[in-house]
Design a protein around this nucleic acid. Sequence first.
DNA 1: CGGCACTTTGATCGTGGTCAATAAGTGTGG
DNA 2: CCACACTTATTGACCACGATCAAAGTGCCG
Lengths: 254, 254
Amino acid sequence: MGQEIAVPPLDTVRPLVSPVCAGMDLCGGCEARIEGLCAPLDDAMLADVAAAGENCTFVARDPLFHQGDEASHIYILHNGTARLTQLLPDGRQAAVGMRFGGDVLGFTASRDHAMGAEALGDLTACRIRRPELERLFRKHPPLERHFLDLCARELAAAQENLVALGRFTAEERVAAFLLSFIEARERRGHAGPVHELPATRADVGELLGLTLETVSRTVSAFRRRGWLRAPSPQTVQLLDRAALVQLASGGASS
Amino acid sequence: MGQEIAVPPLDTVRPLVSPVCAGMDLCGGCEARIEGLCAPLDDAMLADVAAAGENCTFVARDPLFHQGDEASHIYILHNGTARLTQLLPDGRQAAVGMRFGGDVLGFTASRDHAMGAEALGDLTACRIRRPELERLFRKHPPLERHFLDLCARELAAAQENLVALGRFTAEERVAAFLLSFIEARERRGHAGPVHELPATRADVGELLGLTLETVSRTVSAFRRRGWLRAPSPQTVQLLDRAALVQLASGGASS
DNA sequence: CGGCACTTTGATCGTGGTCAATAAGTGTGG
DNA sequence: CCACACTTATTGACCACGATCAAAGTGCCG
């Protein structure tokens, strides 16, 4: 937003799983401190935020909150992965995104959560009551500005995803997902060439508007083309990132 | 956001074309003053905002700004309709949403606009330079809060649309579009049973991730079922709103 | 009247969904 | 240690929704 804040440089693909500016460590102990990303947050403020937060832990498939619950807290993820989902009246389920250490969840303008959040694997977070957050906003105006930046970035990410869901083929979506996921992990310091995928094929399908079979077939196709290895179904290693980037960006030269 | 602000009551469908809380008149002369919607904005602040704005007018298909342009201004729409679009490298185009009087366009955290905006028909707006907006934020902290609310609502709307694009059938999308569009117009005081649609079938298709032929066929199907009338291709009148709502909400009982 | 942009409708095709069978992995209890 | 149940992944066969290609039809403006 204001102040000519630079967009992180390593964003080669649309942020399909998590907004760009994640990883601004709001209350210490987050898995990744990303330096120089957004507004510099001063230590006194961070200490206040940390003091206001209540730590909590979750295991795989624990809900952080349910769709329809009153939005009484916001959550700041420390370690682990979560996903945001919405359930339709007839039982169809869609996922809106994945969130990682440093991301903020459950910050909404409406009284209730329009979507639920659940942990994918072990997860630690801290949560802050909404009235407490309002108090922090009043005490530290830059914090409110920080949330405005966060919100604007999440919005931009969601709008890019709209384009992907509206116009991308299955292969383009899976490529975009893999790249976006791996970049989000790398940005948080997970360097290894082999990446653990904390989501089932069904989870990925819900995120991309595809069925689990299509996700499986598409990953297999990428494997056959030598674009990636999958030592196990839950791990991936990219072998030809350029080919995937080409696909994932709505490739001009296909 | 904070302060227990009520979500507008007349929202029966997901806001597919425009975020819920549009229509908060930021600089006078807007086609619709919507009372009591969000934070009450005090007159001195509104006067300052109005003074900072520069009025501008557009005709059909004029660009307000292009994808990739530097985000030097934000735009507050007064009258008319605009749409946000993104062009993919290979020429595919997607639309992210439609915007109406009272909506804010072009407010982004990155230096450049990730998407373009164009007028659909005659349009009046006022634009404010970013540095000027920053100055207003400092002078009127509630204005910054107002933008945070706006942004959070736009985010929620975009995320709902993600679910629609990921999981809805063609008929569900078209139904959701028609309802959302008509509700947005009604909320701005356009009461009549017959609504002018300032978008071609191709425009609607780009918004919904469908082709123009599918949009046309779907509208025809609704017409045959007696759910709507279309005195001309560019006008619609709903005859059975309940049936459309049923479809558009991801109907449990189909 | 001609030209043009948009819409409608039809015919056909293809991507991705659905249904189903098998395989592989994981944890539990005998 | 293996048998068993259970979850997840993979692959195949088939199908359907919506895309694509094509041809009229309609309204508007010069």
